[in-house]
């Protein structure tokens, strides 16, 4: 069976989606921009992009009921790719916007880098995946972030990077992949990671009974 042809990208307001759209096309998928809670919950492939501030992004998600749709999507283990701020939105809160609750799907708080040489952390950094990670592999990926999660939560696999301190490069659990870096801007390494995320799920769904 062929991979599904549409990938749904959530409109989060201020995010620049052109790079995500271009990356989807390189994967042979047709990008669709969505802000409808029902589609966020049920579309086969959903991307939560992330550029901008934590507080403003959560406000947009709440306005459209997308926050609850995302919680249900993750509970039902449907494929989700969260990018950069998108990963941080899965956490309970962020130092960037004190008092604003995140989606609470990851038991962690996003904090500003404390020992980094320069912030934002801008450029290509290497990642080191945990032993049981399925789609994440060692490589060099492009980042542009000032906030990060400090450690991989107990019930997730993932990868770590170092920039004056160790921090979470990415998390994965079943069909959920959350990247602090930008796979859509990470050249061949990013393309291959996204291809593995897509095919891993397709393989599971199409396994013979």
């Amino acid at each position: 069976m062929n991979a599904p042809t549409t990938i749904s990208i959530i409109r989060t307001g201020s995010a620049n989606l052109a790079s995500v759209i271009a990356a989807a096309r390189r994967l042979g998928l047709e990008p669709a921009l969505i802000d409808d809670a029902d589609r966020v919950e049920r579309d086969p492939w959903v991307v939560l992009p992330g550029v901008g501030a934590f507080g403003a992004a959560m406000q947009t998600l709440r306005q459209h009921g997308i926050d609850d749709a995302l919680r249900r999507r993750v509970q039902h283990e449907r494929p989700l790719l969260a990018i950069c701020l998108g990963l941080q939105l899965l956490a309970t809160a962020s130092e960037e916007s004190p008092g604003v609750a995140g989606l609470g799907l990851i038991d962690a708080v996003a904090e500003r880098f404390t020992s980094a040489p320069r912030v934002p952390h801008m450029g290509w950094n290497t990642i080191k995946p945990t032993r049981s990670a399925r789609v994440l592999r060692a490589g060099c990926f492009y980042y542009a972030n000032s906030y990060r999660l400090a450690r991989i939560p107990a019930d997730w696999e993932g990868a770590l990077s170092t920039y004056g301190e160790t921090f979470v490069a990415a998390l994965e659990r079943g069909p959920i992949l959350a990247c602090q870096f930008h796979p859509e801007l990470s050249g061949e390494a990013g393309h291959q990671l996204l291809a593995r995320w897509i095919t891993a799920r397709t393989a599971v769904e199409c396994a013979p009974c």
């Binding site: 052109a18 790079s19 271009a22 990356a23 096309r25 390189r26 492009y142 542009a144 930008h182 859509e184 801007l185 990470s186 050249g187 061949e188 990013g190 393309h191």
Partner: peptide
Amino acid sequence: VARLRNCLSIPL
């Protein structure tokens, strides 16, 4: 810019 974006998978 749009043409560059379509052929680039790195930051612009």
